[in-house]
């Protein structure tokens, strides 16, 4: 686990540092611009889908869906970050305690 943490930290740190040592012309390339803009969107979407619908080895539907939908609603209403997180956790937790969903 330590190796994973240290290598990952070092590699993301190098990303930041590298930007201070390379010429800006490299980044003004259209392909680079596009990839940098959409890569996080694809990765985050994939991550959300897996966190929401899967366990380690199976598909699942549980209270997280309710939490995610409330988060989405709050984001559309431009609610602040802390509110989005707290309310979605709270709704999921209350429903679980009352046995509405798993």
């Amino acid at each position: 686990m330590w190796a994973t943490i240290l290598i990952a930290s070092l590699s993301t740190f190098m990303l930041k540092i590298l930007g201070y040592f390379l010429p800006e012309s490299l980044l003004s390339h259209q392909v680079a611009k596009k990839v940098i803009a959409v890569l996080p969107i694809g990765l985050l979407s994939g991550l959300i889908a897996l966190q929401l619908f899967t366990t380690k080895d199976a598909f699942i539907l549980d209270g997280r869906i309710v939490g995610a939908l409330s988060a989405l609603g709050l984001l559309m209403m431009r609610a602040p970050f802390i509110l989005v997180i707290t309310i979605s956790a709270l709704i999921t937790a209350i429903g679980r305690a009352r046995g509405y969903w798993a």
């Binding site: 989005v84 997180i85 979605s88």
Partner: peptide, 16 residues
């Protein structure tokens, strides 16, 4: 039980 797994998804949604 604290709904933290849902909070994580909410956090990613807020980033996205």
């Amino acid at each position: 039980a604290l709904g933290l797994d849902a909070a994580v998804v909410a956090g990613f949604l807020a980033l996205l």
